[in-house]
């Protein structure tokens, strides 16, 4: 699901479920390719939520969390940022990240 700064609070910080969030940019080809994987993950599991957010269009929270590079993956639990990783990741690596932190 694509979100914006406006529903960041609702979809991420106030989420009951843990959230995997990815900051992306239109000029970042790895960000586009990973979208398909994230969509798939979002569809197959119900115990966490996957959201994507465009960094150039939503600089509010990006600057708050000091996002410096994309793709930037973050995991939130109960509104708290518990893990972050910057850089392209394979599906296997994303699954491993989820298993380790959620």
């Amino acid at each position: 699901m694509e979100i914006s700064d406006r529903d960041f609070d609702e979809k991420v910080l106030s989420s009951e479920k843990p959230v995997l969030l990815e900051y992306w940019a239109s000029w970042c080809p790895p960000c586009h390719t990973i979208k398909k994987v994230l969509k798939k993950l979002d569809g197959e599991d119900t115990w966490f939520r996957v959201v994507t957010i465009n960094v150039d269009r939503n600089l509010g929270y990006a600057s708050k969390y000091s996002v410096k590079g994309v793709p930037c993956f973050m995991i939130f639990k109960q509104g708290e940022l518990i893990h972050r990783e910057v850089g392209a990741r394979s599906e296997k690596q994303i699954r491993a990240m989820l298993n380790e932190h959620i």
Binding site: P29, P30, C31, I34, A88, R89, S90, Q93
Partner: peptide
């Protein structure tokens, strides 16, 4: 070690 190549030319 593994690196993702996704999105690279």
């Amino acid at each position: 070690q593994e690196w993702s190549m996704g999105g690279e030319l």
